[in-house]
Design a binder for these strands. Structure first.
Lengths: 236, 236
DNA sequence: TAGATTGTTAATCGATTAACAATC
DNA sequence: TAGATTGTTAATCGATTAACAATC
């Protein structure tokens, strides 16, 4: 995907956070909100918020702030959250079933309409109200219902095959949860959540933290010794 | 976490991808690998790979490339992948159970030792060989076993409370899967996977893709009309 | 020697932040 | 009017990329 988008990627990623804060503000009955408050919710400075929102137009009022209802509607529209988006999950293991049942997706317009798997023990079972079908039925269903999105939660060695199958079936957006870089034609949008890779970076931090802790302990225990030394030198 | 790290975040995030490629190369019996090949695996140019690896030292040999075994060992060490890292999952819903059973984590040294939940129907059940305990037992177990990492998969309205509890129990790294910005003291490392927010950005792309498709169809159908017009004007 | 490939320097690119006139 | 807050410009920051001498 060669990204013909009119907004920087980091800005786009923050819009949902602003949106979420706006829903909260609306619920609280607040009619306006400042870039500062939106920034706090997203963990960025107010200037960043204003810059981000400036990509969508002039949405605020100087001296006042942003109209909560208006801005929420603009973001909802810009992100297409009110549009129904059909998806299928391939891989009805733990992760696939968890995503199929994830309660947070519906409010953003995602409808997971079915799961697919090749394990006979899984075929025919349901996840909530969603059925698990054999993978060979994927193409037909995707074409018939014009499904746009495919979610991949199969074991890593099958991920590329499934991606190929999805592309051949006409799926245009792939959300990949397998720990593997997938290859897709340029017109397909591919987004990956590589949890194992993410864990590896956390592992890096845990390791450093452990080291600096040991250092601290060593400093503390020598401080402790010093205290004892002092006690002794005071000779009481 | 004010990030006293000696390597840029984006570089750090790519190291696991290089590592994975190295394991593959080793499996294939390859003894050296070029920055170019590593780059292909991670989707970045060779210069990026060399720059990333230069943060860990001079690891390659000019004219030759990188020793696969040696570089893999260096990365494993740098990322602390061989160190055992104990974790608990709080929230034994679909996602929590999926993560607890996720097969990709063990090879990176993560040991999920228990799950916690407040639902009586879940307490006492197991996920693989891991037991689900009531949340009030979290502090004791974390302290007794010196658990470093907490994984949050509870509903959004409980996420902050659980984070507070984890911090109070001595956990130092939190991996948050709830769609909410959590507040933790500065010495705690907090990393979040906000799947709903990620979905919202995918929604943006799906919406644009749909629009550009409609445009294409419109162009095609007018092209179609033109063909028909021509056919007519040819008068056959 | 010729060819391959590194590590590093410098140039480029893009995002973040600070500052402020304009506006309410 | 005084105070608050926007949108935007310019400065800063940091990461990516290109280029190349050094090395094998």
């Amino acid at each position: 995907m060669s990204e013909r988008i009119g907004i920087p990627r980091p800005s786009l990623a923050r819009l949902p956070l602003y949106y979420r804060r706006l829903l909260l503000a609306i619920e609280e009955g607040e009619e306006v909100i400042s870039s500062n408050d939106l920034g706090i919710a997203a963990g960025v400075p107010a200037a960043q918020v204003r810059k981000d929102l400036s990509h969508l137009g002039e949405l605020g009022r100087a001296g006042i702030g942003y109209d909560t209802q208006g801005l929420a509607a603009t973001l909802q529209d810009f992100l297409g959250l009110a549009n129904d988006k059909d998806a299928v999950v391939v891989g009805a293991g733990n992760l696939g079933r968890a995503l199929a049942a994830y309660p947070g997706f519906e409010r953003y317009g995602l409808r997971i309409i079915a799961l697919f798997d090749n394990d006979p023990a899984k075929i025919g079972t349901t996840v909530g109200d969603k059925q698990v079908f054999p993978v060979h039925k994927l193409g037909n269903l995707v074409q018939r219902l014009n499904v746009q999105m495919g979610i991949i939660t199969v074991p890593v060695d099958q991920a590329q095959d499934i991606a190929d199958l999805m592309v051949a079936s006409g799926i245009e957006v792939i959300w990949n949860f397998s720990p593997r870089r997938l290859h897709v034609p340029p017109h397909i949008l591919l987004e990956s959540e590589d949890l194992a890779a993410r864990l590896a970076t956390l592992s890096y931090h845990i390791t450093r933290q452990r080291l600096s802790e040991q250092m601290r302990n060593r400093v503390e225990s020598s401080a402790q010794e010093e205290v004892m030394d002092e006690g002794e030198s005071l000779g009481n």
